[in-house]
Write a protein that binds this DNA or RNA. Structure first.
Length: 552
RNA sequence: GGCGAGUUGGUGAAGCGGCUUAACACACUGCCCUUUCACGGCAGCACUCACGGAUUCGAAUUCCGUACUCGUCACCA
């Protein structure tokens, strides 16, 4: 086809496209950002399902853009209307809000490069396609699905590369007359890339995370525009990311194999190439098979996004976990910088795992504990209350009624550089502080006591009767020891260990009895602090409760 | 099958040619601290980096091959 014929073809195929490429380039000018600023994007298709992997990729987008003073935007990739799910887009923006991974620009967030939804950018894609046809880099292809399927079969038998390329690209060199005839016969067509590549040649790609990779040149006549006139992912990616001036395409590494195509597209379109960062998928080692597999929402509930809210995992703690899988050196940094937050950390592609990142639930839980240990009693109260409002209204009400005391309880053993680590999730709080609220403690069944050990309740009674809560920790500590001695117990566990025959037990045994009676458990934060918040009256009441329990 | 990537203790992983007798964290075990539990501290936990070969004075680190795992090869993204 001659130059003129191609122009005629382009006009015939896209008579309604009147804007030129130059006009679009003007409409979407270069961003005015400082040197090194990264423009990233989260570009989901509106199927509505968001999982941990998506969250990770959006998190990376956010973090890299933020620390470089760039922009992170949301673009909806809805070129496939068949996959569209009712409410899918709202679900995506909702998740971004809930998980505090908010774009500063994009669909439903506004910005200069709108529309940020591909279904509203059809004219733009078609304009560039029209230009590509004029230049001889694209052509209409009339092959039927049956034809393509049979080619594929043949290729499979011959064990050659699968796809429409070279001799298989039947409509590549159709004459203008032939195209006209097919169209007047009402034959449907797609627009394919007329790939200038040569698979015998090699191209080298540098990925920000994976490093140097070599591929054969792309030579397949990939579909650019579907029968319905909408673009395929590849074409839309090239156009949108160019026009929106993305600097770094951060996406899942299922895309690396289409890299040669994307690079070729940028070349023939005359676009400045952009950087790619392909992040490894989150995987898990299957307990049964021992194989590494992608995590699935069904088998691994923590992969679904609902899990975190329902189980009361703090968003910030999840961020911490995402950060540790994003940059392998984050965890150590965080542990060594107890006064810093995620925003103080400098993320880098060099520290990003190349292979798959395995999900480690125990690690997440530990991070959560560290997170809580660094929060003040008041913060723990606020956040737990907020969570309970949605998931445990009964408890929320109790928290509200006992606000002052609860904050005091949550604050026990918080000061100093060795804060307690006992809560991992908001949903743990109710159980962990079961002794704090009378309404709940009355129902205590002492099931946390594993053994059926009996305690000397007379001793406990005597102790409680003489209890003076206006003492310092040291005074109290001495008091207990004296009490122990006068009742035949060793003041130090060591003394008891040396000579068990001479004692009934040691101080620890007395404390254990007290703790069990007062809190219904063998583990709890500092006893004196708890008793101080409770007050003597409640302490006495708890002894009676325990006696009732024993007599049952 | 073609193409691309990965493979380091029970787990997540660091490491990018000599400073590694393989960091750190989680788990586990022991000891210590402690009125108890927790927290914390100390110690132990891979004589070795999937396997085979090559390069080198020297390799977990470079190269080649094998095995296994993952990704991809749609008018889905």
């Amino acid at each position: 086809m001659s130059d003129n014929e191609r122009v005629e073809l382009a006009e015939m195929l896209f008579p309604n496209i009147t804007k030129t490429r130059e006009e679009y380039e003007k409409m979407y000018p270069e961003r005015n950002l400082k040197e090194g600023a990264m423009v990233t994007r989260y570009a989901p298709s509106p199927t509505g399902s968001v999982h941990l992997g998506n969250l990770l990729s959006a998190f990376c987008d956010m973090v890299y853009a933020r620390q470089s003073g760039g922009s992170y935007y949301l673009r909806i990739e809805d070129t496939d209307q068949k996959r569209k799910v009712e409410g899918g887009i709202e679900n995506i923006t909702g998740v971004l809000h809930d998980f505090l991974i908010l774009p500063n620009e994009g669909y439903s967030f506004g910005g200069e490069y709108a529309p940020y939804i591909q279904s509203e950018r059809n004219e733009i894609y078609q304009c560039y396609i029209k230009d590509l046809i004029k230049q001889g880099y694209a052509y209409p292809c009339f092959m039927s699905e049956e034809e393509i399927a049979s080619i594929r079969e043949e290729q499979e038998i011959n064990k050659t590369k699968i796809g429409i390329y070279g001799v298989y690209a039947a409509d590549r060199d159709l004459s203008l007359e032939e195209v006209k005839e097919k169209i007047s016969n009402g034959e449907e067509y797609v627009i394919r890339l007329k790939s200038p590549g040569d698979a015998k040649k090699e191209i080298e790609v540098i990925d920000c995370i994976k490093g140097k990779m070599k591929f054969p040149e792309h030579d397949v006549d990939t579909i650019l525009l579907k029968k319905d006139g909408t673009p395929t992912y590849h074409f839309a990616h090239a156009i949108d990311d160019h026009l929106m001036h993305t600097t770094h395409v951060i996406r899942g590494d299922e895309w690396v194999s289409s890299l040669p195509l994307h690079i070729q597209l940028f070349e023939i379109l005359g676009f400045k190439p952009m950087k790619y960062a392909h992040i490894a998928p989150i995987t898990i080692k299957d307990k049964e098979t021992g194989n590494i597999r992608k995590i699935s929402k069904r088998k691994d509930p923590f992969f679904g996004v609902k899990y975190y809210d329902e189980n009361g995992i703090p968003i910030e703690a999840l961020h911490l976990y995402l950060a540790t899988i994003t940059n392998t050196n984050f965890e150590e940094w965080y542990l060594n910088n107890s006064d810093k937050t995620i925003n103080d950390f400098e993320f880098s592609f060099d520290k990003q795992a190349v292979g798959g990142t395995s999900f480690d639930e125990a690690k997440l839980m530990n991070l959560c504990k560290t997170y809580f240990s660094r929060k003040s009693g008041e913060e723990v109260y606020k956040e737990t209350y907020h969570w309970a409002l949605k998931h445990d209204t009964e408890y929320a009400k109790l928290l509200e009624e006992n606000k002052e005391d609860m904050i005091k309880f949550f604050s026990i053993e918080k000061d100093g550089d060795r804060p307690r680590k006992d809560i991992a999730k908001y949903s743990d709080v109710r159980e962990e502080f079961s002794y704090a609220i009378d309404e709940l403690f009355i129902k205590e069944d002492y099931s946390k006591l594993e053994s059926d050990k009996t305690y000397d309740l007379e001793l406990v009674k005597e102790y409680i009767d003489n209890l003076d809560l206006n003492q310092s920790n040291e005074e109290w500590f001495h008091g207990v020891k004296e009490f122990a001695i006068t009742h035949g117990y060793a003041a130090n566990p060591k003394d008891y260990k040396k000579d068990p025959a001479s004692y009934k037990g040691h101080v620890g045994d007395i404390c254990e009895a007290l703790r069990v009676v007062i809190t219904g458990r063998t583990k709890s934060p500092d006893l004196l602090s708890i008793m101080k918040v409770l007050g003597k009256q409640k302490v006495e009441m708890r002894l009676n409760l325990y006696k009732e329990h024993i007599n049952k």
